[in-house]
Design a protein around this nucleic acid. Structure first.
Lengths: 216, 216, 216, 216
DNA sequence: TATGAATGAGCCTTCATTCAT
DNA sequence: AATGAATGAAGGCTCATTCAT
């Protein structure tokens, strides 16, 4: 992982078919990285899975690292957008958190390969996490934090906890559900864990007078 | 990562200094893996950091993978023992959880290299996590779960949540604190997050009558 | 020498120049193995001698062992074909043996490197000899045996000696000539030994009445 | 195989037990080299089989190569002595050859490990054969050649064949019997091949008048 | 003499990347 | 744009040999 940040001249000047091929490579990479692991996976494997020649990968990505980073980026772009849309759709902060949790676990639970890549392969190196995760992950967590902050401002949630810290606690709990689901035999749907996590979190974050955090 | 589970027939038959050298290699590996990342680190780097020749590593470990696995095992053995001792030292389930959280974050916060290895490097591959994490991690989580289960049986905690799931939620929240601390500039002590996490978790898990989960 | 018998899925799917490069590597290997010895020779040496990069060797052969095995196979394929053609060209069994001897020593005498590889390097390990020599060498010896058997059936040769045993005796004598020639200063042509060996062998195999085994 | 010709200061200054240990190492080496092959065999394997520590091997031999060379030397010393004694015991040149053949195949047939080492492992490298085999092998072949030369001078054998060449032909034939026996399933005793080989050879070498070469 | 832990040079093989076609 | 043969740097691991005990 040399992690050359220099983004590849990928999208521009590409033919219309180029975009499809780029997508195909990312999809293939998700499958291959999930199955073999990022370091064990060869670029040739990804190319084969995508139905292109090895060299073609380098027409769309600057390096193997770039493929992984692009994978992360593409998914996060969608995730952030969906999270924002989901949060905006309702007004109640607690309901917002519930929606965000369902979106999060729903996305991973629907695509195990994606879940493996996100829960395992993407955490390969501090370097990677520091350089790439930072910006987009912060944005994603920001959506959660905002919902919490709103809950605090409306008095629905206790204000004695830093909302950023709180967002990480919720995210961490959801994250563990996802990792655990991957490593388990997956008898049930991942998304089903969402309510339990949010319920405990919201109760724990309820304002002392006990007026909220109660469902129904 | 071929991950041959077969423990190396090494340490016991080794020379008097053997144990010390094995420990030295594991300590060196913690530092090197944390700095360079497991895949980027060369066995020669670890050897150099440990003050031994490259070949010597193979007198104590069967492979590079085995070094990582042994690192995990050694730490988990201690962690499980400390967790059990910490839990047994007090009677109140809530206080037990608080102690476990402090032990957990305290250990990682005291040794950033160890934290990096545990939060990042050890999660490199599904294979590794599936094969190694399983047994010892389950044991560790078991200590948390037991405290929760006791809390439920004493009526201090709501019984409508599976204690195993609850233990993962708490662990996940703590885990995220650790990962976040690593990736941040670390302005404050990691262990300081323990109370916040436990507080929210315990409140969230409080039985409906609201008699417990209140500190002081 | 792990000697994976599995032939490499290489040549057919290779590029146009593939066959030539494969041949070039085998030729280079003959020279390098002859000069340095199989175990002392490095794959990089062979590659350099063939004018390709080290990695290229692995596009055509699965391993260093496979190079040696392929060398043996290629030569034996030709040798068996030539032996059969040579034997069929004449009718007299004795003349057939003479031709086979000349072909055998002529081939090795013309290419000392090949002779060294066949007389020395290929006999490195019982494993190799057992696994590879077996089939093709048996075929080669079979051509000699058939000529002897015919000589016996025509009455030209004594029938009280198992033709298979006899073929090995003749082969062994020729083989020793080749090995001796390699180790000597080679003042004369190896092929010149052919007649002497065949002469003694044929006389020794002459039927008791003494009517044959006498050269015209 | 670096083949340092410098003989190790082995025998002199050794304690009485030293000689035994040296012999034990050579015996162990015979077994280990035969089973694993010289290059695959580790010095530690030989040491273990001999019941000594790895370092001890270097008290008696200067290198791994030296062990192989010493193995060859020890056996050849005995073989030459036995051959000479065997040849001197009878007067008839033909009977001498018969005895030499029996001694040769008898020795190898009695100890398959020794046979493997001599027929396969010792032929590892041209360097080895050139440097070590030369002197002692020439001596051994000399005993055969002398018997043939005597046969020629008594008129029992044709004189139109160089006795040195003839000795190699006989040796080669016997050699092939030994190699073949090793690679086969060994249904019968190796020594049983001796008479057949000698019979054919002696007939082939019989003087033209046909008065000798006839058994009985 | 004997030990065996330690050494470290050496090498086969892999695979990300390039580039001629 | 696409190919895939070719490259060659890199590294895990082995094992003959040494040497402090």
């Amino acid at each position: 992982m040399t992690l050359s940040t220099t983004s590849h001249p990928s999208s521009p000047a590409r033919a219309p078919g180029g975009r499809d091929k780029r997508e195909a490579i990312l999809d293939a990479a998700t499958r291959v990285f999930a199955q073999r692991g990022f370091f064990q996976a060869q670029v040739a494997d990804v190319a084969r899975a995508a139905g292109v020649a090895a060299g073609t990968v380098y027409l769309y990505f600057s390096s193997k690292d770039d493929v992984l980073a692009s994978l992360f980026e593409r998914t996060m772009r969608v995730a952030v957008a969906e999270a924002r849309a989901g949060a905006e759709a309702v007004d109640d902060p607690i309901e917002q958190l519930r929606r965000l949790a369902h979106l999060h676990l729903g996305r991973l639970g629907r695509n195990r390969d994606l879940a493996v890549v996100f829960q395992v392969e993407l955490r390969q190196s501090t370097k990677f996490m520091e350089r790439f995760s930072a910006a987009q992950l912060r944005e994603y967590l920001g959506v959660i934090r905002d919902a919490i902050a709103r809950g605090q401002s409306t008095g629905a949630m206790r204000a004695d906890v830093n909302p950023t810290v709180a967002s990480k606690i919720l995210f961490g709990a959801l994250d563990e559900m996802a990792t655990d689901w991957i490593l388990s035999q997956r008898p049930k749907r991942l998304e089903d864990s969402a309510d339990t996590v949010v319920d405990i979190f919201v109760r724990g974050m309820a304002s002392s007078d006990g007026t909220s955090g109660e469902r129904g």
